[in-house]
Amino acid sequence: MSETPTTDGRARRWAGHREARRLELVDAACSAIAEHGPEVTTEQIAARAGVSRPGLYRHFDGRDDLQSAIAARSVERLVAELEPVWRPSGRPFDMLAKALRAHLRWLGANGNVYRYLKRTSFGTGGESATTNVRATVASHVAGMLVDGSLGAEIEPAVAHPLAFGLVGMVDSASAHWLDEPHGASLDQLVSQLTESCWAVIRASLGTDAVAGP
């Protein structure tokens, strides 16, 4: 009877060690994707992690599990990059510009990872990882629209479609810019998207409901 707590403690420590090692391998995989591009092979990921291919898969239930773990980690990193935006401060228009700049800065620094996410399913639902990113960010934006952080309190029935539409527009435009910038700088795209998103918000609510920049 007295051995049970000790056994449980060892089991928890071992589980924690395995989870930490799995995270190390996922981070190594993200580095391999950044280096080799979205067509990265399992062998290249294993080499970056310093393990054999079988050694890599001792920590994952096949390629799908590895891809889902990479996707989850990338979503976590992007949300962390945008985390300051979820704490409203300053003028709503400036907050919007700040969020767009953070997103585009992340995208520019992680272009290969983003392209990999577009090809990768997330979890078991079959949705792409980028779809999950959009849903995560859009839910945050909808919450800010509902609570008035962006200048006016909007009822959920309006806020959620508006937020998902804005995030979809930004994602599509920024993904195109990543592959074909057509001479546009990051600053230029931030300015264009900020103005466009703000115009949509004001048009949806009426120009008197939201103060201009």
Score class of each variant (00 low, 15 high):
residue 158 V to F: 11
residue 15 A to E: 15
residue 15 A to M: 03
residue 149 S to R: 09
residue 102 A to F: 02
residue 132 N to V: 08
residue 20 A to Y: 09
residue 123 G to E: 15
residue 20 A to W: 13
residue 63 R to K: 14
residue 44 Q to P: 13
residue 33 I to N: 08
residue 137 V to P: 05
residue 13 R to H: 10
residue 190 V to C: 06
residue 86 W to V: 08
residue 50 G to H: 03
residue 132 N to D: 04
residue 2 S to Y: 00
residue 83 E to D: 14
residue 64 D to W: 02
residue 86 W to T: 12
residue 87 R to M: 09
residue 112 N to W: 05
residue 111 G to Q: 13
residue 18 R to H: 00
residue 87 R to T: 15
residue 112 N to R: 15
residue 178 L to Y: 00
residue 165 G to L: 02
residue 207 T to C: 04
residue 21 R to Y: 07
residue 79 V to W: 00
residue 11 A to D: 10
residue 81 E to S: 14
residue 131 T to G: 09
residue 151 G to T: 03
residue 62 G to I: 12
residue 192 Q to W: 00
residue 10 R to E: 06
residue 81 E to P: 07
residue 82 L to W: 03
residue 98 K to T: 10
residue 4 T to D: 10
residue 157 A to M: 13
residue 93 F to N: 02
residue 167 V to I: 14
residue 74 S to V: 03
residue 21 R to F: 04
residue 198 W to D: 05
residue 70 I to C: 15
residue 40 V to K: 05
residue 81 E to C: 13
residue 14 W to F: 05
residue 81 E to Q: 15
residue 195 E to Q: 09
residue 104 L to C: 01
residue 31 S to G: 14
residue 32 A to Y: 03
residue 189 L to I: 13
residue 158 V to T: 14
residue 203 A to P: 01
residue 86 W to D: 04
residue 74 S to D: 10
residue 126 G to H: 11
residue 77 R to D: 15
residue 5 P to I: 07
residue 147 D to M: 07
residue 54 P to G: 12
residue 136 T to E: 15
residue 61 D to G: 02
residue 108 G to W: 05
residue 102 A to M: 04
residue 18 R to C: 06
residue 205 L to D: 05
residue 176 H to R: 15
residue 164 F to V: 06
residue 186 L to N: 07
residue 139 S to P: 02
residue 177 W to D: 06
